[in-house]
């Protein structure tokens, strides 16, 4: 692999960490963030392609979420610059970043519990004049916009199968439904780039498939997606491009199947000495073991009935 030049339709020139994209939506340079003596993020150069689903992966503590927080204005970098659609966004407050069309969700879902599901959605809308304290007092000034965004919210809720829950408090939703609500809420503002922080964390397997479908649909509608994820299956399944971080740096980039075979990625995830024999553990197949255990339980049950 090291001798042949690898190319990809999303990339100008050779594929590798920090490679140039044909049409980047986010370009970041020299972004660093330190916490005391620890350098959490130290990204020399990275570009995120437009109109694609990009996964940001890496082992725990690689600085993925910190990098995410920096890009969205939730944290301030020590050094660095980045642009979003050509506008510099470094050190811009989070709410302005969101208004530019770069909307994020959170690893630990932040649904607004004591507001109804519909109210949660309406909060995501932009250009509601009634959000000004003075125009708020005169309903005719904001009624029309309110009707528009309510219609839009109901449409989105139907798409995310939350329409039956519309009047319930968001706190009464299950964890997976909250993830869906958070994603739907982010779409209220017609974002250009959707940033999902671990969209699969805490979601039960039944909902996983529908969440994956929703993420793919974002791309079909022309949005770009950047997500942080641990679930390799999901990364392989839906992403067009994978950026791998380890110890704050971008160590590899590429389409999912190539990246998973990359030595740097395997080292980052499994440690450089993952080949060392651990004795009995090697060769164990957890899937087969689980199946055997399930069969045993089933047999026992049948015996007792």
């Amino acid at each position: 692999m090291s001798d042949t030049i690898v190319t990809h339709p999303l990339v100008v020139g050779e594929v590798g960490p920090g490679c140039k994209k044909v049409d980047p939506i986010v370009v970041a340079d020299n972004v660093t963030r330190t916490f005391g003596g620890l350098t959490a993020v130290d990204v020399a150069h990275v570009e995120i392609p437009r109109g694609a689903i990009t996964a940001l992966i890496g082992p725990n503590g690689a600085g993925k979420t910190t990098f995410f927080n920096l890009l969205t204005g939730f944290d301030k970098p020590n050094t660095g610059d980045w642009s979003f659609e050509g506008h510099s966004l470094a050190r811009v407050p989070a709410f302005r970043v969101a208004r530019k069309g770069m909307v994020r969700t959170f690893q630990l879902t932040k649904s607004l519990g004591r507001l109804s599901v519909l109210q949660n959605m309406l909060l995501g809308a932009t250009k509601q004049p009634g959000e000004n304290m003075f125009t708020a007092l005169v309903k005719p000034l904001w009624r029309k916009r309110e009707e528009e965004i309510t219609a839009k919210a109901e449409e989105l809720l139907a798409r995310f199968s939350l329409d039956a829950k519309s009047d319930d408090y968001a706190a009464s939703l299950s964890g997976g439904q909250r993830k869906l609500l958070e994603m739907a809420r982010a779409l209220m503002s017609d974002p250009v780039l959707v940033m999902l922080d671990e969209p699969m964390a805490g979601v039960n397997p039944a909902l996983t498939q529908s969440l994956l479908g929703h993420i793919k649909q974002l791309k079909e509608e022309g949005m770009s997606v950047l997500f942080v994820e641990h679930d390799m299956h999901m990364v392989r399944h839906i992403s067009d491009w994978v950026i791998v971080m380890a110890e704050g740096k971008v160590v590899a980039e590429g389409p999912p199947d190539t990246v998973m075979r990359d030595q740097a990625v395997i080292d980052a995830y499994l440690g450089a000495h993952h080949d060392t024999d651990l004795g009995e553990m090697t060769g164990a197949n957890p899937v087969v073991e689980a199946k055997e255990a399930a069969a045993k339980v089933a047999a026992k049950k049948e015996g007792t009935v």
Partner: peptide, 26 residues
């Protein structure tokens, strides 16, 4: 009047979770 308006909605949202409301551009 204020609390039934979108202004009140944002304010109540802030009571629930500041970061979430911030991430929605407020």
């Amino acid at each position: 009047l204020l609390m039934r308006s979108p202004w009140g909605r944002v304010v109540k949202g802030i009571r629930e979770d500041e970061d979430a409301v911030r991430s929605l551009g407020k």
